[in-house]
């Protein structure tokens, strides 16, 4: 689950990442979200306290993702998922349906699993957000990720980052899960490759590993 090149996703021909390119060129991509926005400038004119009026135009937004404080200026329409993927290069949470159905964008916000595509970045402020990138302790895989490897719980891997995060959030609330609880509790994530039985085994294994006094527990 570790990202090898944290800040250089999808290198293009001229050494520009696709994201750098969109950002720099102001190209209108279909969602229209990338055009007029950039990573936060140094001096964000953040109004003190809760401003009643936010927008139109960019507003200062502060997010706490994987323990790091990220200051951005975004239009209010930007979702947490787009903020992470398009402005912070935190690309572990994937975008598939963009309508709260598939689970690939799952992150943990304030202790709860949520779909990052269904939370506006502006609403995600003030809560600790954990993505797949934030689960590991250095080089060592989180027990949940390790259990996915051990149990062949992925095939193409596209659902995996969201699924692992959903499993971690589930285990936090159900430390001794039954198979039935696992099935119901993880119904918010889809795997087109059908790796569900592997995932079920992985969750059971991780539940044991966490209780066994792992460093990540």
């Amino acid at each position: 689950m570790r990202r090898d090149k944290p800040k250089t996703p999808e290198r293009g021909r001229k050494g520009l990442s696709r994201r750098d390119f969109f950002r720099g060129a102001g190209v209108a991509v279909p969602t229209g979200l990338l055009a007029s926005q950039a990573k936060a400038p140094k001096a964000a004119k953040a109004p003190a306290g809760a401003a009643p009026m936010l927008g139109p135009g960019r507003v200062p937004i502060t997010l706490r993702i994987n323990g790091k404080v990220e200051k951005l200026e975004l239009e209010p329409r930007v979702t947490l998922l787009d903020a992470m993927r398009n402005y912070l290069d935190i690309t572990g949470a994937k975008k598939v349906c963009d309508r709260g159905t598939c689970g690939t964008c799952t992150v943990i916000m304030g202790g709860d699993a949520v779909y990052a595509c269904q939370v506006l970045a502006i609403e995600a402020q003030g809560k600790a957000i954990t993505t797949i990138e934030g689960l590991n302790a250095g080089e060592q895989l989180h027990p949940m990720s390790q259990a996915f490897v051990n149990n062949d719980a992925q095939q193409c891997g596209y659902c995996t980052p969201g699924f692992v995060v959903a499993c971690k959030a589930f285990l936090d609330k159900h430390p001794n899960p039954t198979r039935e609880q696992i099935r119901r509790g993880l119904g918010g994530n889809l795997c087109r490759c059908g790796t569900y039985t592997g995932i079920e085994r992985a969750v059971l294994e991780a539940a044991k590993a966490v209780k066994g006094g792992s460093a990540h527990a």
């Binding site: 229209g32 927008g55 209010p76 963009d98």
Partner: peptide, 21 residues
Amino acid sequence: MMPWLEAFHRPTTIAEALRLM
């Protein structure tokens, strides 16, 4: 996804919320 969204208000009183609406 609501690319056309312009503004987001976070009122802290019901009177304010109704005024904004």
